[in-house]
Design a protein around this nucleic acid. Structure first.
Length: 235
DNA sequence: GCGACAG
DNA sequence: ATCTTGTCGC
C-alpha cells in the first residue's frame, strides 16, 4: 500500500485553514433530505494516529443499511497533515479519509463521520468538509458537545433535544441507549437532520456509537498497527 | 487575559 | 486521539 502524502497547497497554519473553511462553507448543500434510512449503503469513516511517527491510518466500512451487514471496507495510510486544533480537525483527517473512500469498491452512500457537521464554531465541521469535497451526503455523530450546549434528553432511547450554538440549533443531542449519555448529531452535506437522526438510531441497535463508526474505528487501528509498530499485528 | 475545546 | 489493570455487570 502507498502512503498518502500531504496534498500540495494544503493549509500550513491555522489562519490558512480557517480561510479555507470560510471559502468552502458556502458550498454546503442543506436543502436536500438525504437518503432515507433502511435502504441503500451507509459508510463509516474514522482515523487513528501515531503522532510520534507522524502516521495516520484511515478506514471506510460500508454496511447494508437494512441489515447492518458489512458489504465493503478499505483503508489508507498517510502522513499526518495538520496538528490537532479544536475546530480544525478536518485538516488532520481528510486527505487519508479521501483515499480510503476512493479505495472502496462501491458507492459509499451516506457517509457517517466521527465528529461534527454544522455543530461547529464556524458551521463547517469535518462532515461538511468531507461532503463538499466528495459531493456525497454526510452526517456527523460526535461523542461530545464541544462548544454547543443542550438540555438533557428524556431517558428513553430515541429521545432528543436541540444542540445549541450561538443561539442557533445546529443539531441534536440524541439518546441512542436508554439512560446513557447521548450522541451529538449534526448535518454535514446533502442531508436533513431528521434523516441524520433516523440513520443514527438505525445504526445503534445495541451500542451508543453507530456500528459504522465502531467498525471503522477497529479497522483503522488495525491498519495503523500494520503500518507501524506491531503489538498485535499478524505477519 | 483565562478557560474550554470534535478527534 | 493516546497512555493503561482490574473490575463490575449483562
Amino acid at each position: 500500500m502507498t502512503t498518502v502524502r500531504i496534498p500540495a497547497g494544503w493549509p500550513a497554519t491555522e489562519e490558512e485553514a480557517r480561510a479555507v473553511q470560510d471559502e468552502l462553507r458556502g458550498r454546503v448543500i442543506l436543502d436536500e433530505p438525504g437518503p432515507p434510512p433502511g435502504a441503500g449503503t451507509v459508510t463509516g469513516v474514522d482515523v487513528a494516529y501515531d503522532d510520534e511517527r507522524g502516521v495516520v491510518a484511515a478506514a471506510a466500512v460500508a454496511l447494508d443499511a437494512a441489515t447492518l451487514g458489512q458489504v465493503a471496507e478499505a483503508t489508507a495510510v498517510g502522513e499526518v497533515s495538520f496538528p490537532y486544533v479544536p475546530g480544525l480537525l478536518a485538516f488532520r483527517e481528510i486527505p487519508t479519509v479521501l483515499a480510503a473512500l476512493a479505495a472502496l469498491d462501491r458507492d459509499p452512500g451516506l457517509v457517517v463521520c466521527d465528529g461534527y457537521g454544522l455543530a461547529h464554531p464556524r458551521r463547517f465541521g469535518l462532515a461538511c468538509h468531507l461532503g463538499v469535497l466528495t459531493g456525497l451526503p454526510t452526517i456527523g455523530v460526535a461523542k461530545n458537545p464541544f462548544t454547543s450546549t443542550y438540555e438533557e434528553p428524556a431517558a428513553p432511547r430515541g429521545s432528543s433535544s436541540p444542540l445549541l450554538s450561538g443561539g442557533e440549533r445546529v443539531g441534536r443531542a440524541l439518546r441512542t441507549r436508554a439512560g446513557v449519555k447521548p450522541v451529538f448529531v449534526s448535518v454535514g452535506h446533502r442531508t436533513g437532520i431528521d434523516n441524520a437522526c433516523a440513520h443514527t438510531l438505525a445504526l445503534t441497535p445495541r451500542y451508543r456509537i453507530p456500528d459504522t463508526t465502531r467498525r471503522a474505528d477497529a479497522l483503522c487501528r488495525l491498519a495503523l498497527r500494520n503500518a507501524v509498530g506491531r503489538p498485535g499485528a499478524p505477519g
